[in-house]
Amino acid sequence: MKENSKVDPKSGHLLISEPFLQDENFVRSVVLLCENNENGAFGLVLNKLSILKLGELIDDLSFLDCDVYVGGPVEQNTLHFIYYGDKILEDSIKVGDQLWWGGNFVQLVSKLRLSEIDLDKIRFFIGYSGWSEGQLENEIEEKTWIVSDSTDTNYILGSSPEELWRIILKNMGGEYQVLANYPIDPRLN
């Protein structure tokens, strides 16, 4: 993985919160940037598990015991998803190598009901992370976020939410390996 906070963050980049960020919505967060354009940016926090299950949110999927993550503090009454593999839904947007964001929800429900989707290759989110025009770039300049252009799905979907932040930083190497070991509160070190 390589980091470059001097370039504009693009769809598919990961935003890794700096170790001492105190915003409770983003402490030790890894955000998948799904869209960044002249209107602002949209992303999903990959490592903040909610207390809800998908079957509790969607009546047609009440049989599913699938985790739901908190995508961010904005519009937590909305449901979003990403999946890995071939494009299997109309209107899905490519955000990485075989990584897709959203798509036709009716098709999704049908495929889930027929067990045509591997639940290890899909992740659901309530809410999202959003930035107004230029806001994300300002936060990057202020070093709130470390930007990585790698969306290795082995880490994104295969790591525990508690370890994802640390794993990604360690795999970035160099100074980021040191950051990965910073305690949340250095005064307790």
Rank of each mutant, 00 (worst) to 15 (best):
L32P: 14
L32M: 15
G40W: 00
I16Q: 02
E35K: 14
N36F: 02
L32K: 09
F26E: 08
S17M: 03
E18T: 15
K10L: 15
K6H: 08
V7H: 07
N39L: 10
E24H: 13
P9L: 08
D8C: 11
N37T: 01
D23A: 09
N25P: 13
N25W: 11
K6V: 01
E3C: 10
V7W: 06
N4K: 00
I16N: 06
L21Y: 12
G12T: 04
N37Q: 03
E38G: 05
S17W: 03
V31F: 13
S5P: 04
N4A: 04
D23C: 12
K6N: 05
V27W: 06
F26V: 13
E3R: 12
S11Q: 09
S29I: 03
K6F: 07
S5A: 06
F20V: 08
C34Q: 00
N25S: 14
N4V: 06
S5F: 09
D23E: 12
C34V: 07
L21N: 05
C34T: 00
Q22I: 11
N25E: 05
L33C: 11
E3S: 13
G40N: 01
F26Q: 13
L33Y: 13
E38V: 03
E35L: 11
C34G: 14
D23W: 09
L32N: 07
L32T: 09
V30I: 08
N25T: 01
F20W: 11
C34S: 14
L21D: 03
G12F: 13
S5R: 05
S17E: 06
V31L: 07
S29W: 09
E35G: 00
A41M: 01
F20N: 12
N37F: 02
D8G: 11
G40V: 03
P9D: 00
K10N: 13
Q22M: 12
E38I: 04
V7R: 08
